[in-house]
Structures are given as structure tokens and as C-alpha cells.
Amino acid sequence: MNRLVIVPAVLVLTLAGCSGEPDSASSGGEQKLTVLAASSLTEVFSGFASDFEADHDGVEVVLSFGSSTDLAESAADGAPGDVLATADQTSMQVAQDASVTAEDPLPFATNQLVIVTAPGNPEGISTLADLDGTTWVRCADDVPCGRVAVSLLDAQSVTAEPASLEADVKSTLEKVTSGEADAGLVYASDATAAGDAVDVVEIDGAEGALTTYFIAPLTQSKDSALAADWIDLVTSDDGEQSLVDAGFTLP
């Protein structure tokens, strides 16, 4: 089931795997814009939503966050939505192959993996090889953060097995901040969002294994003009600065 989390001026739905779809009922706005977005975009897109609503009277933004793979598959199956934003091209291609992207997807941000640990880095982790012998976690192989992790681990011949494979990057981060894991591989933007709750260890070579985020309007959109306005906001100069401030880099 979807879990509704109310934040100022924004209604956020968090997807649990593939089981949920955005609620089609409006809770006050005359118009509604539904954005399906990778979980790593939670903080920055929530900020965009507040700005968007302030500039569009009577519009309610509904943000549905989850694994890019799950979101793209849901969109391909016709789930309600106006805009899709994924954490890699592979996920966006699922929507393209199903002909549910109304325009060519635009690259709008990049991200790289870092190691996060408990504050103080009690296990003394400084490289991927140091994960051996610790309780560490990463994303599952079939989601963007997992694909990047596998690429980095293979490139550095690291064979340490993770304690668990998580559905998305937020779940991975939660394992570390809750104390269930000594370390996790997450995006730099998620480490930025976590603040003092984690220590961050840069990964040698991570800048060569960036993931690129893509955004596109969906054919099932009920308001293509609003969808275009959202994409314009994300790709604007102010939008790019917000992404950089949140720990992303630009393509």
C-alpha cells in the first residue's frame, strides 16, 4: 500500500516496490500534477514542488517516489502520471519502449556513489576493499544504484558480499542510519541529505561511473502544459543550482 507523508505544500506518496500507484483523488487543488521520480530525488523534488505550487495557483503537486525500475514499469503499464524522472537511461528506456514518453527524455543531473558509515566511521572504512568483514549493504542489481555499485565493485575486484540488497537508495541509507549496517553504498546526494547522521567516504574511480538522470512527460498526462512547466523548472538555471546544492552534478 502507499504511505502518505504530508510535507509543507506537497503531497508525497512513497511507493513500496511495485505494489502502489499514485492516488487519483485530489485533496484540494483544482488541478493536479503527478510526478513519478527516483527516490534519490526526494529532497530536491519536494523543494521544486513547493516552488511550483507557489507559481501555479490551484495546482497540487503529487510526488510518487520509488525505485526507477519500478516507476518506469508502472508508467509503462499505464499508471497515472504526468512526468517520469529516473536515475538512469536503462530505466527510462523501459518507458520509451512502451511508447509512454510523450517527448524525448532530457538528461538533467548526474550522481556518483559514496560509502556512508555510522558517525565516526567506527570500522575505519576508507576503500571498497575495506567492506570485507563488515556488515554492509547496497541496492539490488536491477535498480540504478545497484547497477552502478556492481560496476564499481567489479572494476576494483571487490568480492565482499553485502548483508542485504535493498529496493532503492533510501532503503540502503536507512540501514546505515538505523544502525543495522556498518556501511552502505549510496549516491552523493543522499549522503548530503543525511547530514551528520553519517560519515562519507569518497570512492576512488566513482567519478568515472556516474549515473545520469532523465526526465520526460508521459503520454497519459492529463495536462501536458503543466508537465512541460515542471520539466522547465527542473532544467532551469535555478533548478540546476538546486540540484548542485543537493549534492548532484550536472551532465
Rank of each mutant, 00 (worst) to 15 (best):
A167H: 02
F65L: 12
V61R: 01
D55Q: 14
Q93K: 13
A98M: 04
P105D: 05
V61L: 09
G58T: 08
Y187L: 12
S91C: 10
D190R: 06
D77Q: 14
T177E: 07
A54L: 13
T69Y: 14
F45M: 10
Q93A: 12
L131D: 07
G120Y: 00
C145Q: 03
I115E: 01
L71Y: 02
E103G: 03
S50L: 09
G78L: 11
E53K: 06
A49T: 06
A76I: 07
T117N: 03
S171M: 10
G184F: 03
S68C: 04
T172L: 00
T101W: 01
L84A: 13
G184M: 09
V158I: 13
P144A: 15
L185G: 06
R138Y: 07
D97Q: 14
S178I: 00
Q156E: 15
T177I: 14
C139N: 15
T117G: 03
D57P: 11
G179H: 09
V61N: 04
L152D: 01
V83Q: 06
V148T: 15
G58R: 07
V137W: 08
D190H: 08
P122A: 05
T127N: 10
P80W: 11
T117R: 01
P107N: 13
A102H: 02
G184L: 07
S126T: 15
V158L: 10
D182H: 11
T159L: 10
V100Y: 01
F48C: 04
L71K: 05
S126D: 13
G66S: 00
S46E: 15
